[in-house]
């Protein structure tokens, strides 16, 4: 005797939703608590901080990535509506566009991470902070008695400068490079989570968000590829599955809509 799982296609009368939709909303509720906890931690850390850096992240890049994710939500919902209208080829095209957007987002995010890992900060014995790029390899910097660092420009935090820096690296005039003896340095590091509370918060929140994007891409990739076979036997069931994946994708995009102004603008 074969047992069939009820309410995978039609709505359950008492809840008004099919099984997977109830499941995803319960999951998303737990996700709200996870990210809500992190946002609360951010607020309290910031309130308690004596110094909080501004303009450390590249706003034009973050803004572009925001556009990419907004576009991906639109293509996602278009994929679902195409499936509801039984336009299979259109569904696959829209879903492919969503996948491309997700990959582009992660690619840009990894470039941002790489840029931060190559950005250094030096705290001098008198408490002054100098940030910039090392003009030597990290291995050389560890052995050398002095640090050669090209300090950030004064207007490095401005929108115009950040926009220009995407396309060309600031000029590395030899006269601008600082040679700082290590005896004058209290502490130095690249921009990793250990550098400051701000960067620890940034990497934790965007890293967790990036993992969610990656998870979403795996699910959407499955529905674009092998999972799409379900269309032949039960298209409405596939439409429901894609709707559930779309709800997750929208949630992840929504989290970014809050992350972007929190970390990049404020």
């Amino acid at each position: 005797m074969e047992l069939e799982i009820p309410y995978t296609v039609t709505a359950r009368p008492d809840t008004g939703s099919y099984n997977a939709k109830i499941g995803i909303w319960l999951f998303l509720a737990s996700e709200v608590m996870l990210f809500g906890g992190l946002f609360s931690a951010y607020i309290f850390l910031r309130m308690g901080a004596t110094h909080w850096p501004h303009h450390l992240l590249n706003v034009p890049i973050g803004l572009f990535n925001t556009f990419v994710l907004i576009t991906s939500s639109i293509t996602m919902v278009m994929a679902w509506t195409a499936l509801k209208m039984r336009q299979f080829q259109s569904y696959r095209r829209w879903l492919a566009a969503t996948l491309v957007c997700g990959v582009v987002f992660l690619g840009i995010k990894s470039m941002e991470y790489k840029d931060k890992f190559h950005h250094y900060g030096v705290i001098l014995n008198n408490g002054q902070e100098i940030t910039g790029h090392l003009e030597m390899t990290p291995a050389e910097a560890l052995k050398s008695p002095t640090l050669r660092i090209l300090p950030d420009a004064e207007d490095a935090g401005s929108f115009g400068y950040q926009l220009q820096s995407i396309f060309r690296r600031p000029a590395t005039g030899e006269e601008k490079v600082l040679e700082i003896p290590k005896s004058d340095i209290q502490w130095w590091s690249n921009f990793t989570p250990r550098y400051s509370t701000y960067l620890a918060t940034y990497f934790t929140m965007t890293g967790l968000h990036g993992l969610h994007i990656l998870g979403g891409l795996l699910v959407l990739g499955f529905f674009w590829g092998p999972g799409a076979k379900l269309y032949r036997t039960n298209p409405e069931h596939l439409a429901n599955r894609v709707e559930v994946a779309g709800l997750f994708w929208h949630f992840v995009d929504l989290v970014w809509i809050f992350l972007f102004p929190t970390l990049y603008l404020l």
């Binding site: 939500s73 779309g246 709800l247 929208h250 929504l254 102004p261 603008l265």
Partner: peptide
């Protein structure tokens, strides 16, 4: 809540983001 309704919530939040971004820029 269906994907359609959630998408409309998303559109509302994106509108607020653009307005906030406009305010921040000005």
């Amino acid at each position: 809540m269906s994907l359609r309704q959630f998408h409309l919530v998303f559109v509302t939040v994106v509108t607020c983001l653009f307005l906030g971004m406009g305010g921040w820029s000005l």
